[in-house]
Design a protein around this nucleic acid. Structure first.
Lengths: 229, 229
DNA sequence: TGAAATTTTAAATAAATCTTCATGACCAGT
DNA sequence: ACTGGTCATGAAGATTTATTTAAAATTTCA
């Protein structure tokens, strides 16, 4: 089911939110401060983030600005009633929805479901026939275009060919040797050592955090695997 | 590429919208009040208008009503969450899409692209048989005429044949080899090297800046692609 | 037929990409 | 913790491919 990240310093409130969301079948992770939240958002694949603006150390607004471009997922902003309206206004554009405390947890759940549905529709708008999609990565063989979270990413010839091979054969470990043979051609002479270079290049383009790859994993001593999460 | 007009009194929000749209290759003009927006909409040729309903002087709703009939382009209406839903409902008739603040700028971009594609398809339905239009380029197979932004452009035989092939098969990467075969004929002997020369000639006639082609893109190491948007 | 337009060829230039290699980090088993 | 093997990383040089230009060859049509 969908994974949700809550960035909220008030542990009591966070727990309450978590309980209600879990009762509704969501998988929930709570980060109690901005730094943890930022790190978590960038390394794990969440479908939605609930963030409190008034965080003690790092400002929730700053976090929002940092993540918004990178992640194409809905954000729900939570703020105390007393927050000045200027701040709220600035936030308006980065968030998909916002709620003022105190609020009814059931309303939160409803809004979460609403946003997830909305994004689902949005993503499908851009999806065409003949395309393969996993993990928010859409690859189109005909047009040779790649979308990552709805954003077009430019790929060089070899990068594209390798990614296509991976996505046509997901969840299988491929050795560098077979990757080379399948992409460069059976009878090509050449150094297998180029493969890792390309894997890294692709990771930089499709992974949230390429130093901790989740989509193209290294299987030590064997090869690489494109995961369907 | 496509020109977009934003009518929005909140300069901060307008700038953010502008930034995101420009990052996606759109040309954007911002009008900070209704009067300027109205004037701009009527004098320049925009492909899409984003309008805030709650404008201070002239009501966004009134502007919409004034332009709606005159311009056959998509409108995206933006409104604050506090607006009563009745008003939004009434607007639905005149607008093609609407969004309530707060919203995610990436979503705005997605909706803009979506509307432009929708209108593109709509326009093509009304086209005469044998006519194709993408990116402001209209090609008529029967009369062998080409219009670029309403202006007739003269094309030589081969230039026309290649452009026609491209526009009959948009969003697909074609190698020089296949272009040659499809245009010159399967069994024609000859040098593939002429194809790039023609691509350049066509670009000079249909692209705004042929050194940075947006319509006929080069897919390095593979071929060329005529983009629908 | 002969001038003008068009098409093709070819060569120089420019640009993007591929490969290699050196270095350091990481992993698994001892 | 040590060690031999494997992987990640970044950058430079080599290579491949595309663009551009101009001139030669061909076709068109008055």
């Amino acid at each position: 089911m969908d994974k949700i990240l809550i960035i909220e310093d008030d542990k009591q409130i966070a727990e309450l939110e978590k309980d209600f969301l879990e009762m509704n079948g969501f998988e929930v992770f709570v980060a109690n401060d901005g730094h943890k939240g930022l790190k978590e958002a960038m390394t794990e694949a969440y479908q939605l983030i609930i963030i409190d603006i008034m965080l003690p150390s790092v400002n929730g607004y700053d976090i929002l600005m940092m993540i918004r471009d990178k992640l194409n997922i809905p954000f729900i902003v939570v703020s105390a009633r007393s927050d000045d309206m200027d701040k709220i206004k600035g936030i308006e554009l980065g968030a998909d929805d916002y709620m003022t405390k105190p609020f009814n947890p059931n309303e939160l759940v409803a809004r979460v479901k609403n946003q997830l549905l909305r994004y689902d529709r949005l993503l499908n708008v851009n999806k065409q026939q003949g395309e393969i999609e996993f993990n928010g990565v859409i690859i189109n063989e005909e047009s040779r275009r790649v979308l990552v979270n709805g954003q077009e990413i430019t790929m060089t010839t070899t990068e594209f060919d390798i990614l296509l091979f991976f996505m046509k054969n997901p969840d299988i470990v491929h050795s560098k040797q077979t990757i080379f043979e399948r992409v460069w051609g059976e009878d090509e002479y050449g150094d297998i050592g180029t493969v890792p270079v390309y894997v890294q290049k692709i990771r930089k383009k499709i992974e949230k955090d390429y130093t901790h790859p989740k989509i193209i994993e290294t299987v030590w001593g064997v090869g690489y695997r494109f995961n369907r999460l």
